[in-house]
Design a binder for these strands. Structure first.
Lengths: 281, 281
DNA sequence: GAGTGGTCTAGACCACCCT
DNA sequence: GGGTGGTCTAGACCACTCC
């Protein structure tokens, strides 16, 4: 894994925003039908873009609290509802986090890039090589039917399976939420194994060839569990990797969910990477 | 490309929701401090989940209009603001679309899966093989500096480049928004070429090896342009593919953006594909 | 107790569509 | 003209934090 610091959202080029105090708007705009100064944007969009601009310009710095809602209401001359709508949208864009009773803060930007080269070297061991403090936290082990309809793409056939849910941290930041499903007749040792390490590492120990793994990458609004794990608001975009091992000896499938601003995948096609890994083994 | 029909959001298992008319709440709940029937959820969440449940249950069917906002207000006994908030969240979850003056409609579900095997066979030709009506629509050709900060990962060095933007349709549905950057000294023929076909197809014609292509897959809220192209609301999750050709003869980089509910990527590691391509060459 | 963010209300106005 | 969704207001209440 590689860290991409100073990575920024492509939230759209920031426009120069002009805003006026509400009082002057009320007297000027609706009466005289003058062309609106907001370029067709609504008020909450103007507020949103202005705050977004201030973050980009460094007026509000990562980790700092921004101006409080009440003050923004006074400053922009709009209602509190409008300011709160703008702040909520910026939270969904990954720019802000809010803590009731404390304030609204600019998020730190730090995204991890997971290598997905053809030999699937993206294991926890890999991350350790690059000096990341990685940690795996077991959330639950349960027996259940697959209710996540996304996984129906792997045809789970409505059987009861063992489900292992865990959270993977990098430098104390939660970056992955993994739900893996195993057959119920699996041994306890294998369950323990899957609870403690990356899926890829676990599969390797059982000599599962990477070529037997099917991988689907997609995006989706954060699931309910992911919202809790990552403290993300409803609708927060996530990057998902749906995986399935087609190996006959060990059948596993599942999904890894990551906040869009915490993880990206890189696919390398460089042939030299093959030999590098081979030599180590 | 393969179509995954009947694909569903993993919006979270739908809970059984109980709601009461506002009037009865006011008299019962706040006065007697009875445990709330909403399991700690707020009103807009209850409304959201109930409408979500109805869509999943087929009460509201794809393409149909759901109950109007005014009627929902009466039915749930909440304010219009609350219902509208719930509907907006469901729009961001990809379940609904609204048309002012007409109504709110349940979206059709149909997602395309783009194959990203090691030989990068995901070209427009591939799509044609599978009987999709694919179409490419040129949006613009311009000279500009790279303002999209996501692409700074490819180190564009603040030079003026030729930017070609286009929309790719499958079965009349826009599924990709591509922005590619080429050097300014490139010939008009090559610009025309890139305007008319998939990036991969264009690169192949110039004998660019797939091993020279760097690919990063991530997720992000829809850019301003993507919002327009896909008629997606602000904050709509998208799947992005950032690509760069490292070949010395033809330097290209760019980004393809797709709505999360329209496209997923599959990575195949089947070794037979290796040999197949090798034999062809 | 003052300040914070989160939720909610009961209105209002607008642009739009259909009849 | 009646219905639709989108935006906005000026309040209110709550849980929370910090002093």
């Amino acid at each position: 894994m590689i860290v991409a610091s100073n990575w920024r959202l492509s939230y759209g080029a920031l426009e120069r925003i002009c805003y006026k105090h509400r009082s002057s708007w009320e007297t000027l705009i609706p009466m005289n039908k003058i062309s609106l100064p907001n370029n067709g944007s609504s008020l909450h969009e103007i507020v949103r873009e202005e705050i977004s601009r201030r973050i980009a310009a460094g007026v509000y710095k990562p980790g700092d609290a921004i101006t409080s809602t009440a003050q923004l209401v006074a400053e922009f001359g709009v209602s509190s509802t409008t300011v709160k709508r703008a702040l909520r949208d910026l939270r969904c864009a990954g720019l802000l986090t809010s803590m009731p009773g404390k304030g609204t803060f600019v998020k730190h930007r730090c995204r991890f890039i997971q290598e997905l080269d053809v030999c699937m070297s993206s294991s926890l061991d890999n991350a350790r090589w690059l000096d990341f403090q990685t940690k795996i936290e077991l959330v639950s082990i349960s027996r259940e039917r697959v209710s996540n309809s996304t996984l129906s793409i792997f045809d789970p056939q409505d059987k009861v399976l063992v489900c292992i849910r865990k959270v993977i941290y990098a430098d104390e930041v939660p970056i992955m939420y993994d739900s893996s499903f195993l057959p119920v007749n699996i041994s306890d040792e294998i369950i323990d194994e899957f609870s403690e390490c990356f899926i890829i590492d676990a599969l390797r120990r059982h000599n599962v060839d990477v070529k037997d793994i099917s991988l689907i990458i997609d995006s989706a609004p954060a699931s309910r569990e992911a919202q809790q794990v990552f403290q993300a608001p409803n609708g927060y975009p996530t990057l998902r990797r749906l995986y399935k091992s087609n190996n006959s000896t060990l059948s596993v499938f599942g999904v890894v969910e990551s906040p869009f601003d915490r993880l990206a995948c890189r696919i390398g096609f460089v042939s030299s990477q093959f030999s590098k890994i081979d030599k180590k083994k």
